[in-house]
Structure formats: C-alpha cells, structure tokens
Simulated assay, not measured.
Amino acid sequence: MEGQINSIKKYAQDNGYTITKEHGGTYESAKGDLTRKEFKQLLESVKKAKRKPYAIAIKFISRFSRSGGGAIGLVEELVNNVGIHLIETSTGLSTENEKERLEIYDKLLDSRRENMVRLERTLPAMKDFVEEGFWLGKAPRGYTMYGERVTNFANRIEGQRIEINDDGKIFAKSLELES
C-alpha cells in the first residue's frame, strides 16, 4: 500500500500535479464498489468538492475497481458529468483522450475477468475445506478460534479448533435462565 502511495506521489511530482487529498490506505476489496467505505468517501468527496480536482490518480486501475461494467459507468459519470479524469500512474494512461480511456475500460473489464477466474479456482477448494470440518472466517461471538491461520498468535495451533469462551459461557447461562 505504501509503495503505491509513494509511486503516485512521485508521478504527481514528476508530471506537475498537486495532490490535494488522499483516500484509501485500507485493504478494502476492489470487487464491490459501493460496498467499500473508502471508495464511497472518495466518490462523495470529489463530487461535493467546490473546487473539483482535475483527476483521481491510481497506481493500477484494478485498484480503482474490479466490477467491470459498473466501474466503466462510474468512470463515465466522473469524466462526463463531474469533469474528473482518472490517471493510472503505473502506465500514464488517462481518461483525457478517447483511445486511452478505452484502454482503461479494457483494464477494468480484465480486472473483473480476473476476479471471476480467481473465484472459479478458489470456491471448490473452500467448499472442500468446509466439508472437511474446518471453519471459514471468524468464529461466532462467544467462541474462540484456534488454528494455523488465526490473527492472534497466542491461538495458533496445528489444525483447527473452536471453543466456547467466557462470553459464550455467560450467553449459555442466560439462555438456561430463560427456559
């Protein structure tokens, strides 16, 4: 993430652009555009700005969006209705001219295609993982997960185990009191 930000800053400096505001800095998935908090803030910020920025700079266009046609619609709205361009700083492509805009659209469609292929490859493996008795994601409230991929290093073990924790025991007691 930091490498992308530094690259964008260097591109701006080398090409005479001034960065007026930074967005992002989080690891949000680029699959669903309007479900991404930072992405929505970016769009609202540029649309509501009294003094519109010239462009939104992104190191790789795939970091802008992976929604394909939806992303193309957003770019069209930004360029045609709001007057804001997109610049892919890794290549210098910009929506300023039609030919480069079409290249950016191709890249947005390629990003969507990549996501679909990745999903086709990972879903069967995830299904097998669950069928083998493993849990995907976080443990429900009231339980603690132990395993090889947990974020809390104190809970790392070989294999996977889910145990009721103190909150879960309190919750279970409260259910006993109700019955």
Rank of each mutant, 00 (worst) to 15 (best):
M1P: 02
M1N: 11
E2I: 12
G3W: 11
G3N: 11
I5C: 08
S7C: 12
I8P: 01
I8S: 04
I8H: 03
K9H: 12
Y11N: 05
Y11G: 00
T18I: 12
T20W: 07
E22Q: 14
H23E: 07
H23F: 15
G24L: 01
A30Q: 09
K31C: 00
D33Q: 07
T35M: 07
R36Q: 07
E38Q: 14
F39L: 00
K40V: 13
Q41R: 14
L42C: 12
L43M: 14
S45F: 02
K48F: 08
K50D: 06
K52I: 09
K52C: 02
A57R: 03
K59P: 00
F60Y: 14
F60W: 13
I61M: 10
I61H: 01
S62F: 02
S62Y: 02
S62L: 02
S62T: 04
S65D: 03
S65M: 03
S67W: 09
G69M: 11
A71Q: 05
A71I: 06
L74V: 11
L74R: 06
L74F: 03
V75K: 04
E76I: 13
E77A: 08
L78M: 06
N80H: 13
N81T: 14
V82A: 01
T89N: 06
G92N: 09
S94M: 07
T95E: 06
T95Q: 11
E96H: 01
K99F: 07
R101D: 02
L102F: 10
L102I: 09
Y105E: 00
K107L: 09
L108H: 03
L109K: 12
D110Q: 15
S111N: 07
R112Q: 14
R112F: 14
R113M: 08
E114T: 05
E114K: 04
V117S: 07
T122C: 07
P124L: 10
A125V: 15
D128I: 15
D128T: 15
E131T: 12
W135M: 07
G137D: 10
Y143P: 00
Y143M: 05
T144G: 05
M145G: 01
Y146R: 02
Y146W: 05
T151H: 03
N152M: 06
F153M: 10
E158L: 12
G159V: 00
R161C: 06
R161Q: 13
E163A: 12
I164C: 09
I164Q: 12
D166K: 15
D167Y: 15
K169S: 05
F171Y: 12
A172Y: 14
S179I: 15
